[in-house]
Design a binder for these strands. Sequence first.
DNA 1: CTTCAATTATTAAAATTTTCATAGCGGAAT
DNA 2: ATTCCGCTATGAAAATTTTAATAATTGAAG
Lengths: 225, 225
Amino acid sequence: MKILIIEDEKELRYDMVSYLSQEGFLCESARSFSEAIDKIGVYEYDCYVVDIMLPGGTGLDLVKTIKEQKHQGGIIIVSAKNSIEDKIVGLEIGSDDYLTKPFHLSELNARIKSIIRRRSFNGNNEIQFNEIRVLPDSRQVYINGKEISLTAKEYDLLLFFIANKGRVIPKDSIAEHLWGDYMDQADSFDFIYTHIKNLRRKLVQQGAKDYLNTVYGIGYKFQSE
Amino acid sequence: MKILIIEDEKELRYDMVSYLSQEGFLCESARSFSEAIDKIGVYEYDCYVVDIMLPGGTGLDLVKTIKEQKHQGGIIIVSAKNSIEDKIVGLEIGSDDYLTKPFHLSELNARIKSIIRRRSFNGNNEIQFNEIRVLPDSRQVYINGKEISLTAKEYDLLLFFIANKGRVIPKDSIAEHLWGDYMDQADSFDFIYTHIKNLRRKLVQQGAKDYLNTVYGIGYKFQSE
DNA sequence: CTTCAATTATTAAAATTTTCATAGCGGAAT
DNA sequence: ATTCCGCTATGAAAATTTTAATAATTGAAG
Protein backbone atom coordinates (compact mmCIF):
# COMPACT_ATOMS: atom_id res chain seq x y z
CA MET A 1 0.00 0.00 0.00
CA LYS A 2 1.41 3.31 -1.09
CA ILE A 3 0.70 6.60 0.64
CA LEU A 4 1.40 10.18 -0.37
CA ILE A 5 1.92 12.61 2.49
CA ILE A 6 1.52 16.27 1.62
CA GLU A 7 2.80 18.41 4.46
CA ASP A 8 5.14 21.38 4.57
CA GLU A 9 6.25 21.21 8.22
CA LYS A 10 9.49 19.34 7.98
CA GLU A 11 9.47 17.57 11.33
CA LEU A 12 5.87 16.44 11.17
CA ARG A 13 6.36 15.19 7.62
CA TYR A 14 9.40 13.24 8.68
CA ASP A 15 7.60 11.75 11.70
CA MET A 16 4.63 10.68 9.61
CA VAL A 17 6.77 9.03 6.97
CA SER A 18 8.88 7.16 9.47
CA TYR A 19 5.94 5.99 11.58
CA LEU A 20 3.85 4.85 8.64
CA SER A 21 6.81 3.14 7.00
CA GLN A 22 7.30 1.10 10.12
CA GLU A 23 3.65 0.12 9.90
CA GLY A 24 4.35 -1.38 6.51
CA PHE A 25 3.22 1.36 4.14
CA LEU A 26 5.29 2.60 1.25
CA CYS A 27 5.47 6.36 1.77
CA GLU A 28 6.27 9.30 -0.42
CA SER A 29 5.95 12.90 0.59
CA ALA A 30 5.47 16.29 -1.00
CA ARG A 31 6.44 19.61 0.58
CA SER A 32 4.34 22.00 -1.43
CA PHE A 33 1.27 22.35 -3.57
CA SER A 34 3.21 22.10 -6.83
CA GLU A 35 5.30 19.14 -5.73
CA ALA A 36 2.07 17.37 -4.78
CA ILE A 37 0.53 18.12 -8.18
CA ASP A 38 3.61 16.66 -9.88
CA LYS A 39 3.48 13.43 -7.88
CA ILE A 40 -0.25 13.03 -8.36
CA GLY A 41 0.23 13.41 -12.10
CA VAL A 42 2.80 10.64 -12.25
CA TYR A 43 1.44 8.05 -9.92
CA GLU A 44 -1.74 6.85 -8.25
CA TYR A 45 -1.54 6.22 -4.52
CA ASP A 46 -3.73 4.16 -2.21
CA CYS A 47 -4.17 6.95 0.29
CA TYR A 48 -3.44 10.70 0.45
CA VAL A 49 -2.76 12.63 3.63
CA VAL A 50 -3.30 16.28 2.79
CA ASP A 51 -2.48 19.30 4.91
CA ILE A 52 -4.87 22.21 4.33
CA MET A 53 -2.34 25.03 4.58
CA LEU A 54 0.36 24.59 1.97
CA PRO A 55 2.87 26.84 0.26
CA GLY A 56 1.53 27.55 -3.20
CA GLY A 57 -2.11 26.57 -2.70
CA THR A 58 -4.70 25.00 -0.44
CA GLY A 59 -5.18 21.34 0.33
CA LEU A 60 -8.81 21.59 -0.69
CA ASP A 61 -7.81 22.35 -4.25
CA LEU A 62 -5.47 19.41 -4.10
CA VAL A 63 -8.34 17.14 -3.13
CA LYS A 64 -10.30 18.43 -6.11
CA THR A 65 -7.37 17.64 -8.38
CA ILE A 66 -7.06 14.13 -7.01
CA LYS A 67 -10.73 13.57 -7.62
CA GLU A 68 -10.62 15.09 -11.11
CA GLN A 69 -7.89 12.69 -12.07
CA LYS A 70 -10.20 9.85 -11.01
CA HIS A 71 -7.76 8.55 -8.47
CA GLN A 72 -9.34 5.85 -6.33
CA GLY A 73 -7.24 6.26 -3.18
CA GLY A 74 -8.64 7.49 0.14
CA ILE A 75 -8.05 11.05 1.30
CA ILE A 76 -7.45 12.32 4.82
CA ILE A 77 -7.36 16.06 5.39
CA VAL A 78 -5.14 17.37 8.15
CA SER A 79 -5.61 20.84 9.52
CA ALA A 80 -4.41 22.98 12.38
CA LYS A 81 -7.72 24.70 12.91
CA ASN A 82 -10.66 22.70 14.06
CA SER A 83 -13.06 24.70 11.96
CA ILE A 84 -16.31 22.95 11.32
CA GLU A 85 -16.65 24.66 7.94
CA ASP A 86 -13.32 23.31 6.74
CA LYS A 87 -14.38 19.89 7.85
CA ILE A 88 -17.66 20.10 6.01
CA VAL A 89 -16.09 21.48 2.86
CA GLY A 90 -13.41 18.82 3.01
CA LEU A 91 -15.88 16.00 3.27
CA GLU A 92 -18.13 17.56 0.64
CA ILE A 93 -15.46 17.71 -2.01
CA GLY A 94 -14.63 14.12 -1.44
CA SER A 95 -12.18 13.54 1.37
CA ASP A 96 -12.84 10.51 3.54
CA ASP A 97 -11.72 11.76 6.90
CA TYR A 98 -10.61 14.86 8.74
CA LEU A 99 -7.96 15.09 11.43
CA THR A 100 -7.12 18.09 13.61
CA LYS A 101 -3.59 18.95 14.63
CA PRO A 102 -2.06 18.04 16.90
CA PHE A 103 -2.79 14.34 16.56
CA HIS A 104 -1.08 11.15 17.57
CA LEU A 105 0.62 9.25 14.77
CA SER A 106 -1.12 6.08 15.87
CA GLU A 107 -4.39 7.90 15.33
CA LEU A 108 -3.43 8.78 11.77
CA ASN A 109 -2.32 5.21 11.23
CA ALA A 110 -5.63 3.87 12.51
CA ARG A 111 -7.61 6.16 10.23
CA ILE A 112 -5.60 5.23 7.17
CA LYS A 113 -6.12 1.57 7.85
CA SER A 114 -9.80 2.14 8.49
CA ILE A 115 -10.21 3.93 5.15
CA ILE A 116 -8.35 1.26 3.24
CA ARG A 117 -10.40 -1.44 4.94
CA ARG A 118 -13.66 0.38 4.26
CA ARG A 119 -12.78 0.81 0.59
CA SER A 120 -11.91 -2.79 0.06
CA PHE A 121 -15.21 -3.85 1.61
CA ASN A 122 -17.70 -1.38 0.23
CA GLY A 123 -18.18 0.04 -3.20
CA ASN A 124 -15.00 -1.08 -4.81
CA ASN A 125 -16.11 -4.70 -4.86
CA GLU A 126 -14.86 -5.57 -8.31
CA ILE A 127 -11.34 -5.34 -9.61
CA GLN A 128 -10.43 -5.58 -13.25
CA PHE A 129 -6.95 -6.06 -14.63
CA ASN A 130 -7.12 -6.58 -18.38
CA GLU A 131 -8.77 -9.97 -18.86
CA ILE A 132 -8.66 -10.79 -15.14
CA ARG A 133 -11.65 -9.85 -12.99
CA VAL A 134 -11.75 -10.32 -9.23
CA LEU A 135 -14.75 -10.12 -6.90
CA PRO A 136 -13.19 -9.65 -3.47
CA ASP A 137 -16.46 -10.13 -1.59
CA SER A 138 -16.84 -13.68 -2.74
CA ARG A 139 -13.17 -14.29 -3.54
CA GLN A 140 -14.08 -15.27 -7.07
CA VAL A 141 -11.77 -14.80 -10.05
CA TYR A 142 -12.74 -14.70 -13.72
CA ILE A 143 -10.57 -14.78 -16.83
CA ASN A 144 -12.30 -13.57 -19.96
CA GLY A 145 -15.59 -14.08 -18.18
CA LYS A 146 -14.93 -17.70 -17.21
CA GLU A 147 -14.53 -18.44 -13.51
CA ILE A 148 -11.33 -20.13 -12.44
CA SER A 149 -10.60 -21.81 -9.16
CA LEU A 150 -7.71 -20.65 -7.00
CA THR A 151 -6.63 -21.85 -3.60
CA ALA A 152 -6.56 -19.41 -0.69
CA LYS A 153 -2.86 -18.64 -1.04
CA GLU A 154 -3.06 -18.31 -4.80
CA TYR A 155 -5.95 -15.88 -4.46
CA ASP A 156 -4.15 -13.83 -1.82
CA LEU A 157 -1.07 -13.69 -4.00
CA LEU A 158 -3.02 -12.59 -7.05
CA LEU A 159 -4.88 -9.88 -5.16
CA PHE A 160 -1.68 -8.61 -3.62
CA PHE A 161 -0.10 -8.42 -7.05
CA ILE A 162 -3.03 -6.64 -8.61
CA ALA A 163 -3.26 -4.20 -5.69
CA ASN A 164 0.40 -3.39 -6.32
CA LYS A 165 0.41 -3.66 -10.09
CA GLY A 166 3.37 -2.02 -11.75
CA ARG A 167 5.39 -1.97 -8.54
CA VAL A 168 8.30 -4.23 -7.79
CA ILE A 169 7.35 -6.31 -4.77
CA PRO A 170 10.21 -7.75 -2.72
CA LYS A 171 9.82 -11.33 -1.61
CA ASP A 172 9.97 -10.23 2.03
CA SER A 173 6.88 -8.10 1.50
CA ILE A 174 5.06 -11.01 -0.02
CA ALA A 175 6.02 -13.24 2.87
CA GLU A 176 4.96 -10.63 5.40
CA HIS A 177 1.67 -9.96 3.68
CA LEU A 178 0.63 -13.56 3.19
CA TRP A 179 2.06 -15.22 6.26
CA GLY A 180 2.29 -12.47 8.88
CA ASP A 181 5.07 -12.12 11.38
CA TYR A 182 5.76 -15.83 11.71
CA MET A 183 8.85 -16.21 9.64
CA ASP A 184 12.16 -14.70 10.46
CA GLN A 185 14.95 -13.89 8.05
CA ALA A 186 16.50 -17.37 8.13
CA ASP A 187 13.49 -18.91 6.41
CA SER A 188 13.79 -19.75 2.75
CA PHE A 189 11.36 -18.59 0.11
CA ASP A 190 10.67 -22.03 -1.29
CA PHE A 191 6.99 -21.82 -0.61
CA ILE A 192 6.74 -18.52 -2.43
CA TYR A 193 8.39 -20.03 -5.50
CA THR A 194 5.94 -22.89 -5.40
CA HIS A 195 2.86 -20.72 -5.06
CA ILE A 196 4.12 -18.36 -7.76
CA LYS A 197 4.60 -21.28 -10.06
CA ASN A 198 1.11 -22.63 -9.39
CA LEU A 199 -0.51 -19.23 -9.81
CA ARG A 200 1.33 -18.63 -13.08
CA ARG A 201 0.35 -22.01 -14.39
CA LYS A 202 -3.31 -21.57 -13.56
CA LEU A 203 -3.55 -18.06 -14.98
CA VAL A 204 -1.83 -18.89 -18.25
CA GLN A 205 -3.59 -22.22 -18.59
CA GLN A 206 -6.92 -20.43 -18.31
CA GLY A 207 -6.06 -17.93 -21.00
CA ALA A 208 -4.47 -14.95 -19.29
CA LYS A 209 -1.22 -13.43 -20.45
CA ASP A 210 1.80 -13.90 -18.21
CA TYR A 211 1.92 -10.62 -16.34
CA LEU A 212 4.07 -11.95 -13.52
CA ASN A 213 7.67 -10.85 -14.09
CA THR A 214 10.54 -12.03 -11.98
CA VAL A 215 12.82 -9.27 -10.77
CA TYR A 216 16.10 -11.03 -10.21
CA GLY A 217 17.42 -10.69 -6.66
CA ILE A 218 14.40 -8.74 -5.42
CA GLY A 219 11.01 -10.19 -6.06
CA TYR A 220 8.25 -9.86 -8.64
CA LYS A 221 6.35 -7.31 -10.66
CA PHE A 222 2.84 -7.66 -12.04
CA GLN A 223 2.60 -5.64 -15.24
CA SER A 224 0.86 -5.33 -18.56
CA GLU A 225 3.71 -5.08 -21.06
CA MET B 1 -8.58 -10.48 25.62
CA LYS B 2 -10.35 -9.00 28.60
CA ILE B 3 -10.19 -5.36 29.57
CA LEU B 4 -11.29 -3.52 32.68
CA ILE B 5 -12.27 0.10 32.17
CA ILE B 6 -12.33 2.24 35.30
CA GLU B 7 -14.03 5.54 34.56
CA ASP B 8 -16.72 7.47 36.36
CA GLU B 9 -18.00 9.64 33.49
CA LYS B 10 -20.97 7.68 32.25
CA GLU B 11 -20.89 8.66 28.60
CA LEU B 12 -17.15 8.20 28.12
CA ARG B 13 -17.29 4.84 29.88
CA TYR B 14 -20.10 3.73 27.64
CA ASP B 15 -18.27 4.91 24.51
CA MET B 16 -15.08 3.11 25.46
CA VAL B 17 -16.85 -0.15 26.21
CA SER B 18 -18.82 -0.11 23.00
CA TYR B 19 -15.87 0.85 20.79
CA LEU B 20 -13.50 -1.69 22.30
CA SER B 21 -16.11 -4.42 22.23
CA GLN B 22 -16.50 -3.86 18.52
CA GLU B 23 -12.75 -4.26 18.21
CA GLY B 24 -13.06 -7.72 19.68
CA PHE B 25 -12.16 -7.15 23.33
CA LEU B 26 -14.21 -8.48 26.20
CA CYS B 27 -14.92 -5.41 28.32
CA GLU B 28 -15.98 -4.84 31.88
CA SER B 29 -16.20 -1.48 33.58
CA ALA B 30 -16.09 -0.03 37.05
CA ARG B 31 -17.59 3.32 38.05
CA SER B 32 -15.70 3.99 41.24
CA PHE B 33 -12.60 3.20 43.20
CA SER B 34 -14.32 0.61 45.37
CA GLU B 35 -16.05 -1.10 42.46
CA ALA B 36 -12.69 -1.35 40.73
CA ILE B 37 -11.08 -2.86 43.83
CA ASP B 38 -13.83 -5.47 43.95
CA LYS B 39 -13.38 -6.47 40.33
CA ILE B 40 -9.62 -6.60 40.58
CA GLY B 41 -9.94 -8.88 43.59
CA VAL B 42 -12.12 -11.33 41.72
CA TYR B 43 -10.56 -11.47 38.30
CA GLU B 44 -7.34 -10.81 36.42
CA TYR B 45 -7.64 -8.78 33.22
CA ASP B 46 -5.31 -8.44 30.25
CA CYS B 47 -5.39 -4.67 30.29
CA TYR B 48 -6.61 -1.94 32.65
CA VAL B 49 -7.72 1.50 31.55
CA VAL B 50 -7.61 3.66 34.67
CA ASP B 51 -8.94 7.18 35.09
CA ILE B 52 -6.92 9.23 37.58
CA MET B 53 -9.82 11.09 39.16
CA LEU B 54 -12.29 8.67 40.66
CA PRO B 55 -14.97 8.84 43.32
CA GLY B 56 -13.56 7.18 46.43
CA GLY B 57 -9.87 7.32 45.59
CA THR B 58 -7.22 8.00 42.98
CA GLY B 59 -6.29 5.95 39.97
CA LEU B 60 -2.67 5.92 41.06
CA ASP B 61 -3.59 3.95 44.16
CA LEU B 62 -5.53 1.59 41.97
CA VAL B 63 -2.43 0.98 39.85
CA LYS B 64 -0.51 0.17 43.04
CA THR B 65 -3.19 -2.31 44.05
CA ILE B 66 -3.10 -3.98 40.65
CA LYS B 67 0.65 -4.32 40.91
CA GLU B 68 0.50 -5.56 44.52
CA GLN B 69 -1.83 -8.31 43.47
CA LYS B 70 0.77 -9.39 40.91
CA HIS B 71 -1.60 -8.94 38.02
CA GLN B 72 0.22 -9.28 34.72
CA GLY B 73 -2.06 -7.11 32.57
CA GLY B 74 -1.02 -3.82 31.00
CA ILE B 75 -2.14 -0.51 32.49
CA ILE B 76 -3.10 2.70 30.71
CA ILE B 77 -3.71 5.80 32.77
CA VAL B 78 -6.23 8.31 31.51
CA SER B 79 -6.31 11.82 32.85
CA ALA B 80 -7.93 15.18 32.11
CA LYS B 81 -4.89 17.20 33.03
CA ASN B 82 -1.76 16.87 31.00
CA SER B 83 0.45 17.23 34.04
CA ILE B 84 3.91 15.98 33.50
CA GLU B 85 4.21 14.99 37.16
CA ASP B 86 1.16 12.75 36.96
CA LYS B 87 2.61 11.16 33.90
CA ILE B 88 5.94 10.51 35.58
CA VAL B 89 4.36 9.19 38.76
CA GLY B 90 2.07 7.01 36.73
CA LEU B 91 4.85 5.45 34.74
CA GLU B 92 7.01 5.11 37.85
CA ILE B 93 4.48 3.10 39.79
CA GLY B 94 4.11 0.74 36.90
CA SER B 95 1.61 1.90 34.32
CA ASP B 96 2.55 1.23 30.70
CA ASP B 97 1.09 4.26 29.00
CA TYR B 98 -0.52 7.60 29.66
CA LEU B 99 -3.33 9.23 27.70
CA THR B 100 -4.66 12.76 28.06
CA LYS B 101 -8.32 13.61 27.71
CA PRO B 102 -9.80 14.25 25.30
CA PHE B 103 -8.59 11.42 23.12
CA HIS B 104 -9.92 9.52 20.14
CA LEU B 105 -11.21 6.04 20.86
CA SER B 106 -9.13 4.69 18.02
CA GLU B 107 -6.09 6.11 19.79
CA LEU B 108 -6.98 4.23 22.98
CA ASN B 109 -7.57 1.12 20.92
CA ALA B 110 -4.18 1.43 19.22
CA ARG B 111 -2.40 1.85 22.56
CA ILE B 112 -4.11 -1.16 24.10
CA LYS B 113 -3.14 -3.30 21.16
CA SER B 114 0.39 -1.96 21.26
CA ILE B 115 0.74 -2.83 24.96
CA ILE B 116 -0.64 -6.30 24.48
CA ARG B 117 1.66 -6.85 21.51
CA ARG B 118 4.67 -5.55 23.40
CA ARG B 119 3.95 -7.82 26.34
CA SER B 120 3.61 -10.91 24.25
CA PHE B 121 6.91 -10.18 22.52
CA ASN B 122 9.18 -8.93 25.28
CA GLY B 123 9.75 -10.11 28.78
CA ASN B 124 6.85 -12.46 29.09
CA ASN B 125 8.42 -14.97 26.71
CA GLU B 126 7.53 -18.04 28.67
CA ILE B 127 4.09 -19.20 29.66
CA GLN B 128 3.45 -21.92 32.17
CA PHE B 129 0.11 -23.62 32.73
CA ASN B 130 0.57 -26.45 35.20
CA GLU B 131 2.65 -29.08 33.38
CA ILE B 132 2.44 -27.22 30.06
CA ARG B 133 5.15 -24.72 29.20
CA VAL B 134 5.11 -22.55 26.08
CA LEU B 135 7.93 -20.48 24.60
CA PRO B 136 6.13 -18.06 22.28
CA ASP B 137 9.32 -16.73 20.69
CA SER B 138 10.20 -20.09 19.21
CA ARG B 139 6.69 -21.51 19.26
CA GLN B 140 7.89 -24.48 21.27
CA VAL B 141 5.72 -26.41 23.73
CA TYR B 142 6.86 -28.63 26.57
CA ILE B 143 4.89 -31.02 28.76
CA ASN B 144 6.63 -31.99 31.98
CA GLY B 145 9.86 -30.76 30.43
CA LYS B 146 9.58 -32.87 27.29
CA GLU B 147 9.09 -31.03 24.02
CA ILE B 148 6.06 -31.98 21.97
CA SER B 149 5.39 -31.13 18.36
CA LEU B 150 2.26 -29.21 17.39
CA THR B 151 1.14 -27.99 14.00
CA ALA B 152 0.62 -24.27 13.45
CA LYS B 153 -3.11 -24.40 14.05
CA GLU B 154 -2.76 -26.62 17.09
CA TYR B 155 -0.22 -24.24 18.56
CA ASP B 156 -2.39 -21.19 17.88
CA LEU B 157 -5.34 -22.94 19.46
CA LEU B 158 -3.38 -23.91 22.57
CA LEU B 159 -1.99 -20.41 23.02
CA PHE B 160 -5.41 -18.87 22.59
CA PHE B 161 -6.80 -21.21 25.21
CA ILE B 162 -4.03 -20.56 27.69
CA ALA B 163 -4.27 -16.80 27.13
CA ASN B 164 -7.96 -17.10 27.98
CA LYS B 165 -7.72 -19.80 30.62
CA GLY B 166 -10.76 -20.11 32.83
CA ARG B 167 -12.97 -18.21 30.38
CA VAL B 168 -15.61 -19.73 28.20
CA ILE B 169 -14.58 -19.11 24.61
CA PRO B 170 -17.34 -19.17 22.00
CA LYS B 171 -16.57 -21.04 18.80
CA ASP B 172 -17.05 -17.83 16.81
CA SER B 173 -14.24 -16.21 18.75
CA ILE B 174 -11.98 -19.13 18.03
CA ALA B 175 -12.80 -18.98 14.34
CA GLU B 176 -12.24 -15.25 14.24
CA HIS B 177 -8.96 -15.46 16.12
CA LEU B 178 -7.43 -18.31 14.13
CA TRP B 179 -8.83 -17.66 10.69
CA GLY B 180 -9.54 -13.93 10.55
CA ASP B 181 -12.47 -12.41 8.76
CA TYR B 182 -12.67 -15.01 6.04
CA MET B 183 -15.59 -17.06 7.14
CA ASP B 184 -19.10 -15.82 7.37
CA GLN B 185 -21.84 -17.14 9.59
CA ALA B 186 -22.90 -19.88 7.16
CA ASP B 187 -19.66 -21.78 7.63
CA SER B 188 -19.67 -24.85 9.79
CA PHE B 189 -17.29 -25.46 12.64
CA ASP B 190 -16.07 -28.81 11.42
CA PHE B 191 -12.48 -27.73 11.23
CA ILE B 192 -12.56 -26.46 14.80
CA TYR B 193 -13.84 -29.82 15.99
CA THR B 194 -11.07 -31.55 14.13
CA HIS B 195 -8.31 -29.35 15.45
CA ILE B 196 -9.70 -29.53 18.98
CA LYS B 197 -9.70 -33.28 18.76
CA ASN B 198 -6.11 -33.40 17.50
CA LEU B 199 -4.90 -30.95 20.14
CA ARG B 200 -6.63 -32.90 22.91
CA ARG B 201 -5.15 -36.15 21.70
CA LYS B 202 -1.62 -34.81 21.52
CA LEU B 203 -1.76 -33.11 24.90
CA VAL B 204 -3.18 -36.11 26.73
CA GLN B 205 -0.99 -38.58 24.86
CA GLN B 206 2.08 -36.64 25.95
CA GLY B 207 1.08 -36.68 29.60
CA ALA B 208 -0.97 -33.56 30.23
CA LYS B 209 -4.32 -33.62 31.99
CA ASP B 210 -7.37 -32.89 29.87
CA TYR B 211 -8.02 -29.24 30.63
CA LEU B 212 -10.14 -28.64 27.57
CA ASN B 213 -13.80 -28.66 28.57
CA THR B 214 -16.61 -28.51 26.09
CA VAL B 215 -19.29 -25.96 26.91
CA TYR B 216 -22.33 -27.31 25.15
CA GLY B 217 -23.90 -24.89 22.70
CA ILE B 218 -21.22 -22.23 23.20
CA GLY B 219 -17.64 -23.30 22.85
CA TYR B 220 -14.79 -24.41 25.11
CA LYS B 221 -13.11 -23.62 28.40
CA PHE B 222 -9.52 -24.35 29.33
CA GLN B 223 -9.36 -24.94 33.06
CA SER B 224 -7.48 -26.68 35.83
CA GLU B 225 -10.16 -28.52 37.77
C1' DC C 1 -37.12 -42.72 31.76
C1' DT C 2 -37.45 -42.23 26.65
C1' DT C 3 -37.27 -39.83 22.69
C1' DC C 4 -35.69 -36.43 19.85
C1' DA C 5 -33.20 -32.72 17.73
C1' DA C 6 -29.23 -30.27 17.98
C1' DT C 7 -24.47 -30.20 19.06
C1' DT C 8 -20.01 -32.20 19.26
C1' DA C 9 -16.66 -36.04 18.31
C1' DT C 10 -14.49 -39.17 15.41
C1' DT C 11 -12.74 -41.10 11.32
C1' DA C 12 -11.22 -41.15 6.81
C1' DA C 13 -10.63 -38.96 2.44
C1' DA C 14 -9.66 -34.81 -0.27
C1' DA C 15 -7.40 -30.60 -0.90
C1' DT C 16 -3.97 -27.47 0.13
C1' DT C 17 0.34 -25.99 1.82
C1' DT C 18 5.06 -26.77 2.79
C1' DT C 19 9.34 -29.05 2.27
C1' DC C 20 12.94 -31.07 -0.25
C1' DA C 21 15.84 -32.40 -3.98
C1' DT C 22 17.22 -31.19 -8.31
C1' DA C 23 17.44 -28.58 -12.51
C1' DG C 24 17.75 -24.21 -14.99
C1' DC C 25 18.83 -19.44 -15.40
C1' DG C 26 21.11 -14.63 -14.67
C1' DG C 27 24.75 -11.97 -14.45
C1' DA C 28 29.36 -10.93 -12.68
C1' DA C 29 34.20 -12.19 -13.22
C1' DT C 30 37.64 -14.26 -15.56
C1' DA D 1 32.77 -16.93 -24.50
C1' DT D 2 33.13 -19.66 -20.37
C1' DT D 3 32.81 -20.57 -15.65
C1' DC D 4 30.82 -20.10 -11.53
C1' DC D 5 27.73 -18.93 -7.81
C1' DG D 6 23.65 -17.46 -6.17
C1' DC D 7 18.86 -17.07 -7.29
C1' DT D 8 14.63 -19.00 -9.19
C1' DA D 9 11.82 -22.81 -11.18
C1' DT D 10 10.01 -27.22 -11.13
C1' DG D 11 8.28 -31.71 -9.77
C1' DA D 12 7.14 -34.76 -6.37
C1' DA D 13 6.81 -36.24 -1.59
C1' DA D 14 5.50 -35.07 3.09
C1' DA D 15 2.83 -32.63 6.25
C1' DT D 16 -0.99 -30.00 7.40
C1' DT D 17 -5.54 -28.31 6.90
C1' DT D 18 -10.16 -28.79 5.41
C1' DT D 19 -14.14 -31.29 4.08
C1' DA D 20 -17.52 -34.78 4.39
C1' DA D 21 -19.84 -38.61 6.27
C1' DT D 22 -21.07 -40.97 10.31
C1' DA D 23 -21.29 -41.81 15.27
C1' DA D 24 -21.77 -40.33 19.95
C1' DT D 25 -23.34 -37.12 23.34
C1' DT D 26 -26.04 -33.49 25.42
C1' DG D 27 -29.95 -31.41 27.27
C1' DA D 28 -34.74 -30.37 26.56
C1' DA D 29 -39.45 -32.11 26.18
C1' DG D 30 -42.83 -35.39 26.65
